[in-house]
Design a protein around this nucleic acid. Structure first.
Lengths: 218, 218
DNA sequence: CCGCCTTTGTTCCTTTGTTCACATGAGTCA
DNA sequence: TGACTCATGTGAACAAAGGAACAAAGGCGG
């Protein structure tokens, strides 16, 4: 019954998946919720509840069969198929992303690199050649249900975003530190380094301000 | 009374801050919760509640004074001072991070770049020279209360992490796709590109599976 | 075959976060 | 000065998430 899995659970499933694959690679066949929880930094009770949303795939008194559970999570997450990824904006970050192994490893295939800079167009990164941004609509047409990764400069972001959405993309991973307007049906996830740092700064400052009491509220 | 600000609020304050600075740069003096909410993609009621945790800095019937609010948020977030940042692991991603403008713009100063590769040591990136990882403890000693950004290979991550923590760092931004063990008093934030993609894949798959109903639960 | 042990799956309760409705209070205009 | 308007700030209802406790169920040993 994969109906109404909480978003918090969805965000944790990939974590479990990674830990399970590590176990599988090491030849481990069976794992208890307690052990799996330890290697994913969640409580075993939370882990069990998360898994229970997918169905009843464990065996009481025994544990979970590693490979079977991997398969089930992958199925629910939609990772039994490969997903085409299109990278837009090949600056510092874009290049790093293009070379990032994590994309390729598990079901994500970088299908195109796009940039507006004529100097960059034609250069080879990994197994892909950078194409001009005017190929955007064509590339998206050739890769139905692709995930767009946005790493363009701030001032171009909304325009490019609109074009992506018009071309039919409904999943975007946004590295641009701007709030982008998208229709409700488009799923956008944001990665913002500067915001993460600011959050850390808050906690660091609080530690400095109250060095004595180790137990703080928020 | 900056006592017990919810974590969810803390995570949104930098968002408000950015929008406010944009307004300030455009010369806007006053803003209503409604307008500010629109440019940060949250509900105005949520925005007001968030701001109310900081204190009562608005004027009823009028709105919030932009510059004053910027100052108050910056103060609460600990952004009235500069924070030293140390970048560990100068691979693809590390280089991109070193060149990332977002660090410098608002109070974060990259103070050191560290790597274990002798080929990289000595090379110049931005205004910093890459130092050997054996300088780690020295560099951290010279930069009290610094924030460490971890972008090392997976297999080295836990070892380096332990060294960082031993050397006294209590705030870490982790780009390594591994669960790292740290003591409770260390604040660690994780950025994991592959997990973000997997979450997107889930939603994309769900859209494909149920193309008719636009309203879904999770 | 029966009780014991282990670990899952579920129920209930607490905490946290979000939304709603409205009271509060500053400014304005007659 | 007094009523009116506007937008803030808050108290209470509601929803989501987390945690603890426990019941259900499979394996195992006698």
């Amino acid at each position: 019954m994969p109906k109404g899995i909480p978003v918090a659970t969805i965000a944790r499933l990939p974590l479990y998946l990674r830990a399970l694959r590590l176990l599988s690679d090491r030849g481990v066949k069976l794992v208890s919720s307690e052990d799996l929880a330890n290697s994913t930094a969640v409580r075993s009770t939370k882990l069990r509840k998360d898994l229970s949303y997918l169905g009843s795939y464990g065996v009481r008194g025994v544990g979970y069969e590693v490979d079977y559970l991997i398969h089930q999570i992958a199925r629910v997450m939609g990772l039994t198929q490969d997903w085409p990824v299109i990278l837009i904006g090949i600056g510092n970050l874009g290049q790093a992303l293009a070379g990032y192994g994590g994309f390729a490893t598990r079901g994500f295939k970088v299908r195109a690199l796009l940039d507006s800079d004529p100097m960059k167009v034609g250069t080879q990164i990994g197994d892909q050649e950078v194409q001009h941004i005017n190929q955007l609509e064509k590339v998206i047409g050739e890769n139905p249900n692709c995930i767009a990764v946005l790493a363009v400069p701030e001032n171009a972001a909304q325009t490019i975003c609109d074009r992506i959405v018009s071309a039919g993309v409904t999943s975007i991973l946004n590295f641009v530190p701007t709030v982008l307007q998208v229709p409700d049906e488009v799923e956008m996830r944001k990665v913002d380094l500067s915001i993460e740092l600011q959050i850390l700064a808050f906690y660091e400052q609080r530690k400095l301000a109250q060095p004595t009491e180790l137990e703080n509220r928020a």
